[in-house]
Simulated scan of single mutants.
Amino acid sequence: MKNPIIYSLSTVGILKHYNQDYLIHPQRTDFTGSNGVGKSIIADLIQLIFINDRHLFQFGTEGYKKEVRQIHKLAYKCRDAYAFLTIEIEDGKFICLGVCIPNTTNRPLRPFLITADPNNTKDFKDRAFTIDKIPSSANFIKESGQICLVEELSKNSEIIMVFILNLLVLMTRKRSIMRISSTGIFSLLI
């Protein structure tokens, strides 16, 4: 399998998924279940990680009970909810790309990157972490069981979280460049 590949999807405080770490099979992963259990939310979260602009984002399906679906309602009984993808960028080397979802429309969605080193001048392969250091949903939860606020996470020494404000450049093994703007629009340049 060629890298980069999605290794896992993690949710923290997300409606119907709560705090989970879903391992993604490199060839095929199926999400099955009855209507209203949250299958479509998985696809919506992946889209939201890459298109983290409220004006550009569109839910993949209608709500189960035909209520109007809203991004801020994905945060379930918490101030800040999180969804992040762990991506294997080279064999045994991982980074996480995610989004902080506030429970109100008054605060913006906050895309973030988790690496082993915050130095943006280094290549991603030099900032990546090994499989035994992959962050999980548990890293976002305090000992008291409460979900960390976004401000608390940026101070957590176990997780190096860099919030994407301007332009992030991801280098893959083939030296392709993926650019993700602050509006969440991304393009692949080869």
Rank of each mutant, 00 (worst) to 15 (best):
C148M: 15
V169C: 09
L74S: 07
T32M: 11
S176T: 09
H72K: 04
L149I: 00
D117H: 11
E151A: 14
G92N: 12
C148K: 13
S157C: 01
I95H: 04
L23R: 03
I6H: 07
R127C: 10
K174I: 09
H17C: 08
K16R: 15
I49N: 08
D117K: 10
P135K: 10
I180K: 08
S34A: 15
Y76Q: 09
V68H: 03
Q27G: 01
H25M: 00
A128T: 03
D123T: 02
K73G: 03
E88H: 06
I147G: 05
A75W: 05
G13C: 06
I180V: 15
I131Q: 09
L97G: 02
N106A: 12
Y82E: 01
T130Y: 08
P4W: 04
T172W: 09
N166D: 14
G184A: 07
R175M: 12
G33F: 12
Q70S: 10
T183C: 07
K133I: 00
D53T: 03
H25D: 15
F84A: 13
F186Q: 02
L167R: 13
I5G: 11
F59S: 02
C148V: 01
L149G: 12
T130I: 09
A128W: 08
P111D: 02
I42K: 12
S154G: 02
H72M: 01
L165G: 14
F163Y: 14
T121G: 05
K93Y: 08
I42M: 14
R107L: 15
N19A: 11
N119G: 02
D126Q: 08
L153W: 10
A128K: 04
A128E: 02
I87D: 02
K73R: 14
F57K: 08
K73N: 14
F112P: 01
S8A: 14
R173P: 00
A75S: 14
V68E: 12
T183S: 11
V169P: 00
I160M: 08
Q146H: 12
M161E: 06
I164F: 08
I87V: 15
F31S: 01
T86R: 04
V150W: 07
S187W: 01
A128N: 05
S176E: 15
H55F: 06
G92R: 08
F163M: 02
A81P: 05
H55C: 00
Q27M: 06
D126Y: 06
I185W: 00
I190H: 14
T32C: 12
I147A: 05
F186S: 13
N52L: 01
L97I: 13
M161H: 06
N119V: 03
L15V: 06
I160A: 04
Y7R: 05
A138K: 14
N156C: 10
F163R: 11
R69N: 09
I95V: 14
F50M: 03
S187A: 09
K174S: 14
L165A: 10
I177K: 15
I131G: 00
R179H: 11
S137Q: 03
I46A: 04
H72L: 00
G13W: 00
V169I: 13
R175H: 13
S176A: 14
S182E: 11
N103H: 12
D123P: 07
Q146F: 12
Q27H: 07
F84M: 10
L153T: 10
K2L: 11
G36Y: 05
L48P: 04
C96Y: 02
I185A: 10
F50L: 11
S136Y: 08
G145E: 03
S40Y: 04
I89A: 04
I14E: 11
N166K: 13
I185F: 03
G36C: 05
L113E: 13
